[in-house]
Amino acid sequence: MTEQTTLDVDVRTEFGKGFARRLRAAGKIPAVLYGHGTEPVHVALPGHETALIVRHANAVIELKIEGKAQLALVKDVQKDPVRQIIEHIDLIVVKAGEKITVDVPVVVEGESFAGTIVNQDATSLSLEVEATHIPENVVVNVEGLEDGTHITAGQVELPKGATLVTDAETLVIGITTPAAPVEDEAEAGTEAPAEEAAAE
């Protein structure tokens, strides 16, 4: 399950790129919290703690805003493409016990039958889960699976309480045997000129 962390945050009343730059220089990250029909709340998150939290998919944070606690799901993290500095975060209001739809990473474990390769077509599955019980990932075990085996989303074992939203027929894993390299033709091609030269 995703870990839940509590952060003390500041409400922002200033906006714009210049203010955002000053905020980041002070070690904070600008963010906006919205959802459940509430007015968007612009906040500043503590930089270091937030950076550690958002490394995990679907992180849920308990925000302390002016003394009041509010659960929030990290929806989107915008980074500078070059420096990879977090520039802005979108947060969604969630409530304990509420069901939400999230994309959960697929992790492949085990080794397929000797000589085969594992093709992973889907890197994540959409699941409906409780906001405070979001799984970090779903695991697909390919140990010993042979050529031609397919695993669809509907065949993946889901964590307790999770419901599959992705189409059940979506291909997640395919096991194949790589085609053997065609060496005979290549060798014949290199030998032909030598034979012709000998005939001359």
Rank of each mutant, 00 (worst) to 15 (best):
A188Q: 07
T166L: 01
A198N: 09
E169M: 01
E195L: 14
G161C: 05
A180I: 07
T166W: 07
G161R: 12
G161L: 06
E183T: 15
A162V: 04
E183Q: 10
A198T: 13
A198R: 07
E185P: 00
E196G: 05
E196Q: 14
L171H: 04
L171E: 03
E169A: 08
D167A: 05
E185D: 04
L171A: 00
E185R: 14
E195I: 04
E195T: 01
A194Q: 15
P193N: 05
L171I: 12
A188H: 07
E200K: 15
T170S: 02
P181S: 02
G174R: 15
E187I: 12
A192Q: 13
D184T: 12
P178L: 02
V165G: 01
A188L: 12
T176D: 05
T190D: 13
T177V: 09
V172A: 06
D184K: 13
A188F: 06
D184H: 06
A199L: 09
T177L: 12
E195H: 13
A192E: 13
A186V: 09
A188C: 09
I175H: 06
V182D: 14
G174D: 06
E191H: 01
E169D: 13
L164K: 07
E183A: 12
P181C: 00
A194P: 10
E196H: 08
T177M: 09
E191I: 14
P193G: 06
A180F: 08
E169F: 11
A168W: 00
A198D: 15
V182A: 15
D184E: 11
T170I: 01
I173Y: 02
E191T: 15
D184A: 10
V172T: 03
A179R: 07
A192W: 00
I173Q: 02
T177E: 06
E200I: 15
I175T: 01
E191A: 13
A198S: 12
E183G: 08
